[in-house]
Design a protein around this nucleic acid. Structure first.
Lengths: 225, 225
DNA sequence: TCAAATTTTGAACGATCATTCAGTCTGATG
DNA sequence: CATCAGACTGAATGATCGTTCAAAATTTGA
């Protein structure tokens, strides 16, 4: 088994990558064992030798994508300066990292999400990881907005909106790959947090200035976001 | 043919609605003619009598959803006060209207989007309508931010981010239907535009106050969003 | 009431699917 | 060199798919 294991796992990886390519090209609906086998240059029989069924193959594809994504996330976070703004930047950029944010992989994620059976099957696993990412996002947003009185609620809602925006850009990248610009998407996501922070900063400045100007004017409290 | 048309089109509508239910329950991948027939309580042969093929059936489903969506959009817009803020509110709410924003229909949209063949087939038709909606969104955002110097670019980017946020909430509604709160999503979308507008308003107030306070302090220009 | 037109049925057909398995190939071991 | 376990092949199998079509049921028009 000493030398066999790498052969076996290499082949598995090849087949998984071929599956990703086939799903992207033909959809989950059009992904047949023979197509994947042809794409990988092997016989159909080999598919059920390495994965005991088509379902198990999809399971392996899902776990491959998920662990790859998690690995990239961890690496990028670890390499980033541990301060709110740079960290948030890196997190948002990681959502669109070249290694995980690929036309093919995007197609596979949406293929999984749009199938009720797969959605139910992987929801818990995917949710756990995704929730962790959102929590880490939220922590940075929280620190960025630090001083505001109702930070927690604001940060929570803002992060929810931010993660929706990210998901939405993923969908747009899938639907209009030609038009989609990753850099613009990242910019928009960051600008979203920025404008909130700048708004609160201005609010404080404004209050200070008003106090400085005259004591007569009552401090106006603008609507909360 | 005078009396036949409604019978025929009623049956068509029934079959389309059954198809939507089946796609939502079994996915595009698991949507078979016999399943749809059983859901509608008819024989399999009838499917190919009313729609000459399975492809044509899906085409009809797509057109049904699209025209329904467009109809709701037009009605809601027409009934709304023709002023920027109320209009924007109505537009955002329409994206999540009970009639078109249903668990089943959501699942069908994503089923279409996640299949490469259907995506390519309907992209142009869907893009044309969607682009029109985004243009109408943008017009309102533009009017809301009216006075700012670089309004056009800001409004364009903000609207792009807004529509991404809306799409992202659609995806979240699909993935976590239990947790998803429509009202919160609408609130977040509106708050996004609000905070931008409030930011610019504060910016002007701040400039005025500074001018009023002393002529010594140079006007500071914060980063643009 | 009756014939024509329309709507509906369901068995049958060929195609394609996932899966199986008997047998071949390969390379390391003794 | 011979052996053997792991890697691999591809034809065969049974199930299921979309589609067809002759016949039945129903509705329509006179």
């Amino acid at each position: 088994m000493g030398r066999n294991a790498p052969i076996r796992s290499n082949r598995r990886k090849e087949l998984i990558e071929s599956t990703i390519a086939v799903i992207a090209a033909y959809g989950y609906h059009g992904t047949t064992v023979s197509r994947v086998a042809k794409a990988a240059g092997v016989s159909t029989g080999l598919m059920n030798f390495h994965f005991e069924s088509k379902d198990k193959l999809f399971e392996a594809v899902f776990q491959h994508l998920e662990s790859e994504y998690d690995q990239v996330w961890q690496e990028r976070i670890a390499a980033a300066p541990q301060e709110p703004w740079p960290l948030l930047n890196v997190m948002i950029e990681t959502y669109f990292d070249r290694e995980v944010f690929t036309g093919e992989k995007l197609a596979v994620w949406f293929a999984f999400w749009s199938d009720p059976a797969l959605r139910d099957k992987f929801r818990d696993a995917a949710t756990a990881v995704e929730r962790r990412y959102v929590k880490e996002l939220e922590r940075q947003v929280l620190e960025i907005l630090a001083d505001h009185p109702a930070v927690e609620k604001v940060a929570q809602r803002a992060t929810g909106a931010l993660s929706a925006m990210i998901d939405g850009f993923w969908l747009q990248a899938l639907l209009y790959p030609k038009k989609f610009k990753t850099r613009d998407a990242v910019k928009s996501c960051i600008a979203f947090v920025q404008v909130i922070e700048l708004y609160y900063r201005q609010e404080r400045e404004l209050a200070d200035l008003r106090r400085e100007l005259t004591g007569q004017r009552a401090p106006k409290s603008p609507e909360k976001t």
